[in-house]
Write a protein that binds this DNA or RNA. Structure first.
Length: 311
DNA sequence: AAGACAGACAACCGCGGGGTT
DNA sequence: AAACCCCGCGGTTGTCTGTCT
């Protein structure tokens, strides 16, 4: 195994921050000739830098297709979800975030997101609650959401792998970024139903919700639209589902609860706001609906004991 | 105003994988 | 098969900047 050292000190090569002149020189050279071999680039470009340093500067800073600046909330969510799924594989995470570099994501994680999770009582490495009994509602939401999202992505991936196998076309089953949070893909997966306390429980691509859905949940026979502010809360009692309308500040007590709403056309990504959800809930709602073509579907959200549902 | 401190992020280092000779 | 080289990755360090005392 070889290794490319970068003995800047001993050979008179420069190191440390790049000057605007160096940037311009590197940029001009690559635009003209491409980078080719990084090892020989510095000499050809007239730079007193090692090839490694040039490569890093180009990839992390000079490349034209880099988006700089503040991370959006959606990006935050994506990073957290992807980290829960992929761990510290920054390059893999960066592959799902167009125009962001692995280095930038890594720095952002280490300086901000990690702390944020810790403050919420979530272990940033395992993405699990540190002390469940003392968790804030916010942390409970986040923890459950992460687990649910990770499961969804896995299911989505598995589904695609199965599709690939079925088609037997021999190509690797790569999940493109644009499909990472594709609800249709998740909904189409044929994973056996489970009843754990996930926020996001089920997606189903049917227009009329009736009886027990494919995940084993009684979705009710209602066809209420979230915009009507009449989301129906189903109370789970064993295998039976009682039903009551979410009243003012309905508090789930004693049992798991399930918020169910269905709509033939949930294409608006702000629909759940009709429930006047608090910020922690909107965070989830955004995650669910953002950038998604979402029609003829229904959604179930489980609530844990003690969680408040504002409806 | 100046020094101490913390946060953010750019850059470096060492390792390992993969291709080539 | 072994040695070498290039490249990419993740962890770590260094530097700059803003804030606090």
């Amino acid at each position: 195994m070889g290794r490319s050292a970068c003995p800047a000190d001993s050979t008179g090569l420069r190191r440390g921050p790049w000057t605007p002149e160096e940037d311009q020189r590197l940029l001009t050279y690559i635009q003209k000739h491409g980078h080719g071999s990084w090892g020989s680039l510095p000499q050809k470009a007239g730079l007193k830098r090692c090839g490694k340093s040039c490569r890093l500067r180009w990839i992390n800073y000079l490349r034209p297709d880099i988006k700089r600046g503040k991370f959006s909330r959606h990006e935050d969510q994506s990073i957290i979800q992807l980290h829960a799924l992929l761990g510290n594989r920054w390059s893999a995470i960066a592959a799902y975030l167009p125009k962001r570099t692995d280095n930038e994501i890594k720095n952002y994680w280490n300086t901000q997101l990690k702390k944020r999770l810790e403050e919420m009582g979530i272990d940033p490495m395992t993405h699990r609650a540190k002390h469940t009994s003392n968790l804030s509602h916010m942390a409970q939401w986040e923890s459950a959401r992460l687990e649910a999202e990770a499961r969804l992505v896995r299911q989505s991936k598995l589904c695609r792998v199965q599709e690939q196998d079925t088609q037997n076309n021999g190509s690797p089953a790569v999940l493109p970024p644009a499909r990472l949070f594709n609800r249709r893909a998740a909904a189409s997966s044929k994973i056996a139903p489970t009843r754990c306390l996930d926020i996001l429980k089920a997606w189903q691509s049917i227009h009329d919700v009736r009886g027990v859905d494919e995940f084993g949940f009684n979705a009710g026979t209602h066809h209420e639209s979230p915009t009507s502010a009449q989301g129906i809360v189903s109370e789970q009692i064993g295998d039976d589902f009682g039903r009551f309308n979410g009243g003012d500040n309905t508090e789930c007590a004693g049992r798991e609860h399930q918020l169910v709403w269905s709509n033939g056309d949930l294409s608006c990504n702000k629909e759940p706001a009709a429930f006047q959800l608090e910020d922690r809930d909107l965070m989830v709602a955004d995650m669910i609906f953002d950038n998604t073509e979402f029609e003829n579907s229904s959604l179930c959200i489980n609530f844990q004991e003690g969680w408040n549902l504002w409806s």
